[in-house]
Amino acid sequence: MEKKDTADLENRIPIHEVWDKVLMLPIYGIVDSKKGQDIMEAILQKVVATKSSVIILDILGVATVDSAVANHLIKITKATRLMGADCIISGISPAIAQTIVSLGIELGEVKTNATLKDALAAAFQLANLKIVAIGEG
């Protein structure tokens, strides 16, 4: 039963292992309390299974970040940190950034990046990895 639940969760919340110990989860649509809880559960299980040290949550596809969604994101970040993994939130559009500020959400120590590209660079750095161009140019 527990095994079936885990497989079901992996299907609903697929998390990419983009590199050794680096995970990435794109979040789409509306994050309600059920989805928030599922994301938390799926991430923590995947962090354990892959012994990951960094996880990127890309929220570019999230419809709205209200205080409840922000609360989920902050809790996920805290929980992953307790397990020894850093969490980076990427895909913060200008509209989302201004809305978060107006709403008065304090993200505190949550690491954020505008783009997934920046978040990946930060994640590689956290995982002590370096991207090097091959040859000239």
């Binding site: 709205t64 409840a68 509209a95 809305t99």
Partner: peptide, 26 residues
């Protein structure tokens, strides 16, 4: 959000309205 967009509110202000409605409805 749809109502705000069709009234001509820009993306950011439409999102602000949608977020306020999200808080109220929740």
């Amino acid at each position: 959000v749809d109502a705000a967009r069709s009234l001509g509110f820009d993306r950011t202000r439409s999102l602000m309205i949608g977020t306020a409605v999200s808080e109220l409805a929740r």
